[in-house]
Design a protein around this nucleic acid. Structure first.
Lengths: 190, 190
DNA sequence: CGTGGGGGAGAACGCACGTTCTCCCGCTCG
DNA sequence: CGAGCGGGAGAACGTGCGTTCTCCCCCACG
């Protein structure tokens, strides 16, 4: 059954196009052209565009958090791990096709229109916040800090998207996070 | 010349509808219906929808920064002024029709499509950042802090929009900002 | 070899919407 | 009073796009 392959190709095209040009600016026909998957098959796999959008966000969510977790796992010191998040954000921002946070952008585009998209955005952000909360807890830091680190990360993502200024927002957010961690008695191996 | 009045009415309708439902979800006909300004007149005042969008963002920018500045001006202590920004954000988030930051949402919707909208979003965010930089400088704090406070504010705005959780993100961001200010030797009258 | 069903290509359909055009009213100025 | 024009209501036009339909090919099975 190569419908699994077709599904992957469709999602690959969706990810490139939706992320790069915005969701409403991309038609189902563009997805077909970029993926080589016929319209008929596309509509078998995803009965409506909205479901393709949600599937795109879901798959990207999995991959995004995995990449982050992989990077963070490269550090041993629990205090350092919290800050490693910002290193990774900087790497992400540096990528040439970086255009901001896919979920924030999608929310801006469809948050008022599509409940399913909104739900997916909230799910993703909650998962990210929970992940940070785990890192903060493991470092023996107070739980309030998790939310504060989260806000810094979100601010860095929005700003990096709008300014297209590369990793700078992540570095600045990382310095702020370091101050907050040390202010709470945290220690940070270099 | 009541074309000034028609312009205001058009912009009032545009602000309510674009902000509340998203820009692409609102047609020029909806603007006409909500404003009472005929299509003919609308197109005299704004030769294309994009220009109405930009005008909406510009007018909102002026008003938004004025409201913020008015609130902050109610505090005497320069250190306290920096934190007053977050008090005001909390008040804003509490408003019943709050749906996130209009510029962040517009960027998500049209950033990939419309250069003019992107330019307006960057202008607004730069003005906000400059304003914060002034507050930080007046408080005798290092200029790096301005960017950090800015990132916290952006993070709070995005999060408040997505979560619809009221003033909490602003309060948490305010606590973080307070720690950063105090960590830099700033003093904060209560 | 015949047949039937799954799939591809792309036309067709319906609708939404940005923009323009038509028609007509009412006011203003001579 | 009469001519002309600015403006309102809304139809019309063109296009884009989500979704479905038509037609045809190809291959598995009797």
């Amino acid at each position: 059954m190569d419908s699994a392959i077709a599904r992957d190709q469709a999602l690959d095209a969706a990810e490139t196009l939706f992320y790069g040009r915005g969701i409403q600016a991309v038609g189902m026909d563009d997805i077909r052209g970029a993926s080589g998957v016929s319209l008929k098959r596309l509509y078998q796999l995803f009965p409506a565009k909205e479901q393709l959008v949600v599937a795109y966000l879901e798959r990207r969510d999995i991959r995004w958090r995995q990449r982050l977790a992989d990077h963070v796992a490269g550090h041993e010191d629990p205090g350092r791990r919290v800050l490693a998040v910002f290193d990774w954000l900087g790497e992400w921002f540096r990528e040439p096709d970086f255009r901001g946070c896919a979920w924030i952008n999608s929310y801006g585009e469809l948050g008022a229109t599509s409940e399913r998209v909104t739900a997916q955005v909230r799910t993703h952000k909650q998962a990210f916040k929970d992940y940070l909360a785990g890192l903060v807890r493991d470092a023996g830091l107070p739980s309030d800090l998790a939310e504060q680190v989260y806000l810094l990360a979100e601010g860095a993502m929005v700003t990096a998207g709008i300014e297209q200024s590369g990793p700078k927002p992540a570095e600045q957010a990382g310095r702020a996070a370091r101050m907050l961690v040390e202010g709470h008695g945290g220690t940070v191996g270099h």
